[in-house]
Simulated scan of single mutants.
Amino acid sequence: MKGYTYDELSIGQEASFTKTISETDVYLFAGITGDINPAHLNEEYAKNTFFKGRIAHGMLSAGLISAVLGFHMPGPGTIYLSQTLNFVAPVRIGDTVTAKGTVVEKLPKGRVKIETVCTNQDGVVVTKGEALVMPPK
């Protein structure tokens, strides 16, 4: 498998990845990262929070962006340099999240800015930001 090179990318080019967030995903993410905030893991605790129930880690949805950039576009060989993120709405267990990347600018030194947006199954934006990557040579 080969990723898109700088020259093969064009402004407006898009790619996406979709995943339904399971309870197992949330527990595995908590174990891997050490983020065991009860807002993610304890329904009784989470019922008394702003969200009135458990939510997935914000970085779990952001991780789907990594799948877009590292596997779909630009793809294998891409170096992920930076990412801004805004967590706009909660992701709940059972939500289907689509992460999309859109090329917005080609910069000097082979770098590319990519707008990143995650939406749920209802089209609600849950995470948005901008990535800076170096596509494969």
Rank of each mutant, 00 (worst) to 15 (best):
N48T: 14
L132P: 11
T96G: 12
I55E: 03
V91Q: 03
I65W: 07
G94C: 00
D25P: 01
E115S: 11
I65L: 02
Q13L: 09
H40Q: 07
G94R: 11
L64F: 08
V124E: 13
A131Q: 00
G129A: 09
K100W: 02
N120D: 15
G34Q: 12
L107F: 04
G101A: 08
Q13K: 13
K128G: 12
T127D: 14
T33F: 01
S82L: 01
I55N: 01
H40I: 14
P90N: 10
V26A: 09
F50I: 06
E44M: 05
L85N: 14
I114D: 07
A131R: 06
T119Q: 09
K100D: 08
R111G: 02
F50M: 12
P38W: 11
G110H: 02
K100T: 15
G101V: 10
E44N: 11
Q13E: 14
K113E: 12
L64T: 06
G101H: 07
D7P: 07
V125W: 04
N37H: 13
A131I: 08
N42A: 01
G75S: 02
K52W: 06
A15P: 10
L132D: 12
L81G: 05
T98H: 12
M73P: 10
K113F: 08
T49L: 05
A131V: 05
G34N: 13
T102P: 03
K109T: 12
S61W: 00
A89C: 01
Q13T: 08
F17N: 02
F51V: 06
Y45M: 10
L9P: 09
G94P: 14
I114C: 06
V26D: 01
S22F: 08
E115K: 15
Q83L: 02
L132K: 10
L64Q: 01
K106P: 03
P108N: 09
L132W: 11
N48D: 13
C118W: 03
K19D: 06
G31P: 13
L41Y: 12
P136M: 11
I55Y: 01
G58T: 01
T24M: 11
G58K: 00
M59Y: 09
R54F: 03
G110M: 03
M134K: 15
T33I: 04
G129P: 08
V26N: 08
G123V: 04
D25Q: 02
H72G: 04
M1S: 14
T5L: 05
Y4I: 02
K106M: 02
D25W: 01
V124I: 15
M73D: 07
A56D: 00
S16L: 05
F87S: 11
T96L: 09
F17E: 08
Q121M: 09
D95C: 10
K2A: 13
E23W: 05
L28M: 13
A46V: 11
I11N: 06
G94K: 09
V104F: 00
H72W: 04
S66W: 02
K113V: 08
C118M: 07
I32H: 13
N86T: 15
K106W: 08
I32R: 09
L28A: 11
M1A: 14
G101F: 07
M59L: 10
G123N: 07
A67F: 02
V133L: 03
V133M: 01
E14K: 15
V91H: 12
T78D: 03
S82Y: 01
P74I: 03
G12E: 05
F29E: 04
V103G: 11
Q121L: 05
I93N: 12
